[in-house]
Nucleic acid binder design. Structure first.
Lengths: 221, 221
DNA sequence: CCTCACCTTACGGAAACCCGTAAGGCAGAA
DNA sequence: TTCTGCCTTACGGGTTTCCGTAAGGTGAGG
């Protein structure tokens, strides 16, 4: 089993529950932080001391408070860690159960496990730790479909960016002009219309308004 | 201090932390449930036994699972309780920190306290219990502005419904037709346009698309 | 080299949205 | 009653979106 684990989670009550679980699993050294920046510093320090962490368990959302943070929330921290210490295992433990964010965390950032905070959350977290220790991936049941390939319509970054610009109130013509200026292709009004048409079909939307409402609900933007 | 309190909260870890806090506050009888339906039943039973609860502490969101529920989440439960036992005090303890939902809970349903789950969540909850025991309202700092009158632009149910219909992909003409059929006033296309224009100004939106994006983010719809 | 498939762009017309102006209706105050 | 302010409705015209059709460009494979 893992010997040294770091837990990043801002809420004291949850923090306490998880720490107990980790001890019960036989993990000798369990440390915890309530801010992502602290997590990053501890990880770096541990490496310098040649006693690195073997596993990070982190929430995704951290409430903002008076302390300004370089890494305000989970994804920022995860990105940084996986860039600098790609071998370090990461399990996400969070309430977020929308599939697209889960997909991104696995496909882009390369996390090792994802557990939803639910009634069985702690139980699943314990399973996740065991699987990740064996070198496997783990997804809790609520999001098991996130990585099944058929479930993703091919939405790429261009699409996301397009939807983002739309939701910021830009007209399609303005977006076209912006893309031409920045050499983003395709940039013509016609292409943008066509792309949006495809998205409307993909998501069963009558018009751009409903499209934005839907992708907001899905958490795509 | 309160003698008999019921806690409705689906996650075991949090549940445990809060229960401990309540005991420390000197509350003799603390019971807890993980489903809203169970909460409702316990409340009814306690009244029949002539040992009613004096305070309910409840989360807002409860994860769905295999058990189908008559009251699937906090607001449903709160509405029912306040209808049947208006004098029973209710404190909401949740992560939700958007102002509009908070406003609704106080103004429509008449809850007595609202505490956000944050780093200081437990501390604030303890304050809330004391205040509510004294007959006062309590809002935790994150949402203290929810009830300050100046912060609400006068958005009424008509506006919310209008935005909802828009986000469902209806055209303004379709909405007009629907309202005429259902005798909802104003129903003319012109009035609907005018109302949306006002909303766009209120929310600083360039067009209907951005308007929907904004009100979705705010949690108005 | 040519062909074919695919992507980008262009264009035109219908529908929807945006915005200003103005007329009708209704309630309260003089 | 008349006046006034406010809300609802009507209408016109400019802009944007939606949806075809079609022309140019590019790249893979024959």
């Amino acid at each position: 089993m893992f010997k040294k684990v770091l837990l990043a989670e801002d809420m004291e009550d949850i923090n306490k529950g998880v720490t107990t679980l980790l001890s019960e699993l036989g993990i000798q050294e369990v440390q915890q932080v309530q801010y992502c920046d602290d997590a990053y510093l501890k990880i770096q320090k541990a490496i310098l001391d040649e006693k690195p962490y073997e596993l990070i368990i982190t929430d995704l959302s951290f409430k903002k408070d008076y302390r300004s943070q370089k890494y305000p929330n989970g994804p920022d921290l995860i990105k940084k860690i996986k860039q600098e210490v790609p071998g370090l295992k990461i399990i996400v433990y969070t309430v977020e159960d929308r599939l697209q964010p889960v997909r991104n965390l696995f496909n882009i950032h390369g996390i090792n496990g994802y557990v939803c905070k639910t009634r069985q959350g702690l139980k699943n977290l314990s399973l996740a730790i065991k699987e990740v220790f064996l070198g496997n991936q783990y997804l809790s049941p609520e999001v098991i479909n996130a990585l099944s390939s058929n479930s993703d319509l091919d939405i790429d970054n261009y699409d996301i960016e397009l939807l983002n610009n739309l939701s910021k109130g830009m007209s399609q013509e303005e977006i076209s002009a912006l893309y031409k200026k920045n050499n983003i292709s395709p940039a013509s009004l016609s292409s943008i219309e066509k792309r949006l048409n495809k998205l409307r079909i993909d998501f069963n939307a009558n018009n751009a308004i409903q499209l934005i409402a839907i992708v907001k609900d899905l958490g795509l933007i």
